[in-house]
Structure formats: C-alpha cells, structure tokens
Amino acid sequence: MSQQSDTLSTARPYLLSAPALLLYVGVFMIPLIMTFMLSFYTFDITRGGILSGFSLENYTEVLSDSYFHKIFLRTFVLSILVTVFCVLLGTPEAYILHNMSSRWKSICMLAILGPLLVSVVVRTLGWAILIGSDGLINNTLMALGLIDEPIKLMFTMTGLVIALVHVLIPFMVLSVWAALQKLDPMVESAGQSLGASSFTVLRKIVLPQIMPGVLSGSLIVFALTASAFATPSILGGRRLKVVATTAYDEYLGTLNWPLGAAIAVLLLLANILIITSYNKFIERKYAQAFK
C-alpha cells in the first residue's frame, strides 16, 4: 500500500502467511508423510509389532484380499446411493426454498441447515433411536398392528443410507441454493413470457444453470460419505464395515498400524483422484458458463 523498500514488500506476503505455513508443514505435511511411510512398514505380532522397512505387503494384502474388496465395494456403493438420494431430494428442496417467501424461506433454512451445527454423533443417535429393532418406528408400527415383526433397519444398508442422507443432504441443498442465488430472477419470467410452460422453464432454463451447484454438491456428498466414520460405525457396526471403520479397527483394535495406514493412504488417493478428476470434468463442461 504505502511505499516500502522493495525487499520488504516482496517478503511481506510470505511473512504474513508464515505462521500458517509453518503449522501446516509441521502438523499436516509431516504426519501425512509419516503415514505414507508407515504404510510400507510391516506388522508382526510375534516379532514385537511394527517393523520398519520397505514392503508392499500391506498394499498387496488390501488389493488382493476379497475381504477388503468387499469393504471398498460397499463403501463405493454406499457413496453412490447416498449421493443419488441427496441429488434427488436436495435439488427439488432447494428449488422449493428458492420460490418461498423470504420469511418461510429463512425458517425452513434454519430447519435444514441447523442440524449441520449439531455433532454427527448426536444426529446418528437420533436415527439409532428411531430405527433400532425396538426403536420408535418399529414399536409404533407394531403397536398399530401394521407389522408383525420388526423391520430390520439397524445394521442394514437401508438404515445407513437413510442416516447418511440425513447427515449430508444439507450440503446438497446449500450448494444448489448457492447456484440458484446466482440465477437472474428475470430469466425465468423471460422464459415464461416467451411461452414456455413452467416445466419447460424448469428443465430448459433453471436446471442447466444450477447444474454446477448440483455437481459440486454431489462431489461433497460423495467424498464425505466415502470417508464417513461415526455414522457407519454406530449404525453399521462390525457387520457393515466401510473403509473408515476398517482403518479404525486396524489401528485401535488389532493394532496393525501399517495395514491401517495402507488403507488410509488408499482412501486418500481415491478421494483426491475422484475430487480432481470430477473438478476437471466440471471445469471442462462448464468452462464457458464460468467465463
């Protein structure tokens, strides 16, 4: 801003970001690198636990064992299902919010976004109480005589999908909502004045413009589901292991840190790969729209 000697003003931005930079290198980069290295170590209970060295043993184990295949596949399917439901429910909800009067809109927004501020443990507990075998849904349905025996939701994929959709759908609504905010309100009126029906306006004018919001929302939901831990752990338990709970068990259950590290590294790589390629795809597809 003001005149300083040239060296000082060149150094200044680096000085300003130095505290954060130091912290990141010390407490973020180094731990990640340690985990990466750890994933090449071996674990042998008879020889005293973790043995340093370099071996691909953990990776070959994870990539060849059908037990792990099943877990990775389950995590993937779970993420797809949750994402699809979030898109199908969250997008229309965001659009409905968009069309509401501002008073109702802010009330509904509070109800939808408020849960984001509540710990995921608490929200999952709510579902555990609702869907447990003697949970409220089953008890009510049985008391009403609608079913004879409890519907199995706890420890099933269905229960897990329901709870994860609940946990993550606010991100979807938020993302589409942000896209809708950028929409010129006159565009819709213009479309209608040109003789398009409401449905056509929605499909041909609104949807293409909020597509970037839908896509980035899907990415958030997908990535967060793929690495979700608390909800699958509480509602899926040992019976429905996902990648995150498996890594947890390796670390804190069997104490096989190297194997847990390998699983973590694979999860991280998959995550980064999906995020960056998806972003590339969106950028390419919507390059013109963003210019």
Binding site: Y24, P31, T35, A244, L268, I275
Partner: peptide
C-alpha cells in the same frame, strides 16, 4: 491450495496420521 487442502483429506486419514505423529 495448500491451506485449503485439509478439506480434501478424509478425517479418518488425518486421525491416523496425527496419532502416529
């Protein structure tokens, strides 16, 4: 990008890394 990158790292991965660290 570096400062925003923890968003890309699943918390479980951060958890195991911080534990070793």
């Amino acid at each position: 990008a570096f400062f925003l990158s923890p968003l890309m790292v699943p918390h479980i991965v951060l958890g195991v890394s911080f534990l070793s660290f």
